[in-house]
Nucleic acid binder design. Structure first.
Lengths: 237, 237
DNA sequence: TGACGTTTTTGATCTCGATCAAAGACGCCG
DNA sequence: CGGCGTCTTTGATCGAGATCAAAAACGTCA
């Protein structure tokens, strides 16, 4: 939303001790390659609400999310918004044809990314097919998620959408931080609504309904999943 | 829908004279590679309604569509269906992680595909990074289309959905067969509904409405686009 | 602490698209 | 040509979720 007033760290970081070392694109590189790779990326910080890149911008960089959460979205000319995904640490952004991102990305809360200039990154990939293969894997996984989300948007009820979202979000955090029934929700109700193809009121009402039925408890900055089994049942239809 | 009673042509086809030579994955191969590639694929025919592969099946093949139209879809346990796309000649199917297709594919009308066994195809790619790069390009293009479709499913009205679909479908046929205001629609109204996240009745009513307003004419097996500008305006909102 | 802007929740009402129902239109085969 | 199954269109009604409106909760900063 605000103009990007970013902080670029001069340097002094090492891929080998990077938090997302195992999960990200770089997992396909060996120790020697990693040393070289190190010089390509810069750590960049964004504050809450800042835009990392936007839809019609020419792509000049790729991004690897290191910490924080981002919302990825597209806008219609009249302002309607569809959030196409949330990015978490380890996610890789910026792949595109046509030289333009085809979605925008905002920081939700504080975000750190590892930014790569397009050209040198492209050259680095050139003779490292296993890195390309890794990127391909990530693209295919995203494609699969995108198709799942189409089913949700096109064919599921509001209750199913919300239950599916909560379980899916929890699942992502599980692989990131380990299992917990406390599910932080850093994004706003409006973000959730725009992700699920609903209005903010419907999301809010559905949360309250889930709480009344003892499925969740609404806590500060998130929810607590009291009855995962019932949530699962609601999500499956 | 029916069990796959397919016809496999013994052989006698050449990539170099293939109809989709320019558009498909194989566009990244030179003449020498193409000769080798030829031995990997088999032409396989499917009749209307036959299933080429389905969702939970282990992937054993990749497919290159040569002629005809396919519907790609996912089913919910209770039978609700979301069509995630239509495949046309030149489209490449079968990329996946986890070893399973994550959607099903039926022939709409008669279909011919070029089928590749997974293992030899994988080996062939191994030392041809430009083929991998081409596959990556296709995946990224699909991802972009998937995100556009999410916007449609989550944030557009029935009128907008139908208008957007007609224009988008026409656009795809343009790149395949050249420009024409006559737009064949080989898929059923139910297919269109399941693609747009609507019911068959709403699709039918919207078609009639567009016809009443002089935007289209409903003809046998398709529509005729009488007023592209107005259709465009409806699609953009 | 309290005033103010923002976000979330709750309530009342409306509407678009779904559902239910039936009539046409079309294709296929005897 | 006529009978039958399937697909499409049209009509009548319903309801999930949107919209409009206001209250409540929360965060921030003087």
């Amino acid at each position: 939303m605000k103009p990007s007033v970013v902080t670029i760290e001069p340097n002094g970081h090492f891929c080998s001790e990077c938090a997302v070392r195992g999960a990200a694109v770089c997992s396909s590189l060996n120790a020697v390659e990693l040393r070289e790779f190190e010089h390509l990326g810069r750590r960049v910080h964004f504050n809450a609400g800042e835009t990392v890149f936007s839809e019609e911008e020419i792509t000049t960089s790729f991004y690897n999310v290191l910490e924080g959460v981002m919302r990825l979205y597209k806008l219609l000319p009249d302002g309607r918004r569809q959030i196409v995904g949330f990015a978490l640490p380890g996610d890789f952004l910026g792949m595109n044809l046509s030289g333009r991102h085809n979605f925008s990305a905002d920081a939700i809360g504080v975000v750190t990314v590892c930014q790569f200039a397009k050209a040198p990154f492209g050259r680095f990939i050139e003779d490292r097919p296993q890195l390309l293969k890794r990127i391909n894997e990530l693209a295919i996984r995203e494609l699969s998620q995108a198709r799942d989300h189409m089913v949700l948007l096109g064919r599921r009820s509001a209750d199913e959408k919300v239950a599916t979202f909560l379980l899916g979000w929890r699942e992502r955090l599980v692989t990131l931080k380990g299992l917990s029934d406390t599910v932080p929700l850093p994004m706003s109700r409006q973000d959730i609504a725009d992700y699920l193809g609903l209005t903010i009121e419907t999301v809010s009402r559905t949360f309250t309904k889930l709480e009344r039925h003892g499925v969740i408890e609404i806590i500060h900055g998130g929810i607590s999943l009291l009855d995962p089994a019932r949530a699962e049942a609601m999500a499956a239809a």
